[in-house]
Design a protein around this nucleic acid. Sequence first.
DNA 1: ACCAAATTATGTCAAGTGTCAAAAAATCGG
DNA 2: CCGATTTTTTGACACTTGACATAATTTGGT
Lengths: 227, 227
Amino acid sequence: MGVVPLTESVVPDLKITPREGGYARGQEGLEQILYAALTILVEQGSKALTLRRIASECGMKAGNLAYYFKSKEELLRELLNALISAYEEAFDAIVHEPTESADTRLEKLIILILDDITTKKTSRVFPELWALSNHDPFVQERVNERYQRARVALNELVAEINPALPVDEREIVALFMSASMEGMTMFAGYEKPWRRQMPAIEQLAFRSFLHIIKSLKPGEINALVGD
Amino acid sequence: MGVVPLTESVVPDLKITPREGGYARGQEGLEQILYAALTILVEQGSKALTLRRIASECGMKAGNLAYYFKSKEELLRELLNALISAYEEAFDAIVHEPTESADTRLEKLIILILDDITTKKTSRVFPELWALSNHDPFVQERVNERYQRARVALNELVAEINPALPVDEREIVALFMSASMEGMTMFAGYEKPWRRQMPAIEQLAFRSFLHIIKSLKPGEINALVGD
DNA sequence: ACCAAATTATGTCAAGTGTCAAAAAATCGG
DNA sequence: CCGATTTTTTGACACTTGACATAATTTGGT
């Protein structure tokens, strides 16, 4: 009954904050529940994410989940927290690698993000979160946090590669890059038709993004839109 | 009780195939149900999409839906069909506009797609469909059809702008453009934080895509990936 | 081995779900 | 306005869901 990792990635599946007090079994049970919930979400989607199925997935009875979480909503919050927290350190490491050139670090970051997208977990979970975030402010906030982190990382590299670019234009470029990559989820994600072309897409993205960053003159974006 | 359109767009909300026989009220009831289902999906998400709520939304009783659709699944299928069919003619008109240059038609197509993304309907419904498509082959097939149509249109323009590019490389470029634009949904869609920057994003996308298409040498993509 | 605390199982509750059959009402050509 | 057809309502069904109280079991230090 060992926990089988859903993915092979730089980004861990969940980063669960340990709880204070209690027996060892308590912490174990908590993690089992959250991993079980993640598994259901990935394998069967949010419609199948019921307390009874989560319990059954980790060999418990439904009533026991009430001991760990006072409501289903709280369980889902903890799951989402653990899911998003897992991205915390992933990006910074690449951006601040001191030996590599800015271009190379950008390429590595692009590959990290796009490879993460091809994992089963990311490919399945994030579309669910995008849908949920339209009607749930908490989900919206957490998902936003994940993308803000990615944009900060991209932004730093843009600033290094083209220091002349003003902040607001750097931010739009970073947004454009991030959104472009996220869009690949539905087409080149796990078990999607274009998945095998992902290496080519990664190179195309790197080339394309690098050209935007380098070729953009300060004030040019605002000029294009007639500001 | 008039039907209020959810969006102001070139793409109609639903394209409902009329049914044979019956009274006028029958056709009317059918359309009311499908628009009610769309409204619920947009306003409250797929979890709230129950037969009783759909019925209540269009002033019917739940039992009556069984007269129009023998199951909930069939209702959702018809909704999805009507939703995807609405994109049928939208793209071709722009691509085959004879008076404009290929560059201009590409720009117009990009703007059409990205403007559609900023509508409430598209911004809310497609993330739901992306999530559902991971576990429902029918949804997957229909959504795929929508994007295939977009890629065909983009592909034709790429071929006009850079005829030297072989087919398989054109297809990857078209995929890259389409996926990039879809990714904007979560960031610059309806009521999303970057929505007001959409005009700038559109210009950035046009400039960026045009440069890829024009600068790409035949065989270059495959060379990049080490083929 | 004992025992207080922590964990798990059991059973039940009200509310909501999709489906269906049969009664009631509305439609529209003759 | 008749009357066959179409549309709508009503009421019930078997089932699932989240929540909860309570009993049974397990844990780990003494």
